[in-house]
Design a protein around this nucleic acid. Structure first.
Lengths: 231, 231
DNA sequence: ACAAAAGTGTTCCTAATACACCCATGA
DNA sequence: TCATGGGTGTATTAGGAACACTTTTGT
């Protein structure tokens, strides 16, 4: 591989940063890690890290996420590439950001092997601390994208188990959009999309059992209005 | 600047590639350059190049565009970051792609000082040759984004002079979306957005003069639903 | 006077909204 | 039997789509 031309000038570093969302209880949460080393030692930040020379961008995002937090098998989508000159005090670092949605029932306890992480935690979007680097901006953008996509895609299903009730789904929308939704209108709209299928199972609880639904097709792995990249 | 940690591993190169759209005659055109050097010597490709270590991403895109084609003062928006391992035969190159809209009346004749470019040309989107690298994919994505944004933003105004008739604007929509639009519905919708303002000037021609309009506010420089980054 | 583009309203249909009661179950 | 969440329909409104003729100018 002839890299001579490419090596003429000093290069920036390339990192990935990942905004992982999940719904826990009645809150939308983001996965944060407490940095164990400078810069920003002791401060909260997004999971992420430098990509390897022989590694796909998405692969790097998934690897970092798994190494740092044990989270696997998730919906992943590229967000935006942040490249301000001074976003990292160590030098020029360009960060390709991703957003990830994960069903909280599939999350296992954190087992991180990384020495430079002192803590991993799910933090409510309402109670975010100030984050390292420009990660505040990245989270803000990710949240915007999540809310926006919820309106015209079925992406929200990535946050639920395979079988769920319509009330579960509505609660998810209400939490993410932080607003109440009319039950009848919500059901009408969701069902008219034709993406849900009744199972023959009911969820039993303290009260009237609720029909469980499942998503019809293979879960969507797309990035922009159904357009699939780099696959 | 402590770059020791960053330099432990070999780094990918980072490039920008730019899809520049304009309307000429009755066609949507993209700016292409014919490569003068390997790889892909003699083949058409998008304008672009490697970023410098002390240069903003957007700045690099604008610089490359200006150096290669003389195009300046344009609407610029980040598209997507392509990073497949083998997208460049020279080695690992990650490309941050941008899309640019430029009013064709503001384009000056090309004066490129770069030795590695043998030709610069505006090519109709209908007659694109097969492009170098993964640039076909980038153009496809850019076109998709342009069509999509046209539906819910005023981004199309970037392709027109400051003053324009409603017929000019409608023609622009028809060319980009490649479909006829009803004149009355189009005017109703555009005017109801409240973003246009009548000038007191008429465009004289062979027939009945048409009212010239202009855009009300500062032209939008945004990347995603009005959200401004890195600014 | 005529050719050519400018300009203008109404009807229809679809989709979003607002809104309230009965049902099935476990305790 | 009652407390709790599950489940259902209709009337109104707003926005998008279909559709044709008159006006103004230059030649």
């Amino acid at each position: 591989m002839a890299t001579s031309e490419l090596d003429k000038y000093s290069k920036p570093s390339v990192a990935v940063d990942i905004v992982v969302f999940t719904i826990m209880g009645n809150e939308l949460k983001v996965l944060l890690i407490k940095r164990g080393q400078p810069p920003f030692a002791g401060q909260w930040s997004l999971p992420g890290g430098f990509i390897q020379i022989d590694e796909q961008l998405e692969g790097a995002a998934l690897r970092e996420l798994n190494e740092e937090t044990g989270v696997r098998d998730v919906y992943l989508e590229q967000l935006y590439t942040f490249g301000n000159l001074n976003r990292d005090p160590r030098g020029r670092v360009i960060s390709v950001s991703y957003f990830v949605l994960v069903d909280s029932t599939k999350i296992k306890p954190f087992v991180t092997g990384k020495e430079n992480i002192s803590e991993v935690q799910w933090v409510s979007i309402e109670k975010l601390p100030s984050l390292a680097f420009d990660h505040d901006k990245i989270v803000k953008y990710a949240l915007r994208r999540l809310r926006y996509k919820l309106e015209y895609t079925a992406v929200g299903l990535e946050l639920l188990p395979d079988n769920f009730t319509l009330t579960d789904l509505q609660r998810l929308y209400e939490i993410i959009l932080s607003q109440k939704i009319d039950k009848r209108n919500f059901r009408k709209k969701i069902l008219s999309m034709g993406i849900l299928e009744k199972t023959k199972v009911f969820k039993k609880g303290a009260h009237r059992p609720a029909m469980l639904y499942k998503f019809k097709k293979a879960k969507p792995i797309s990035t922009f209005r159904g357009f699939k990249f780099e696959g």
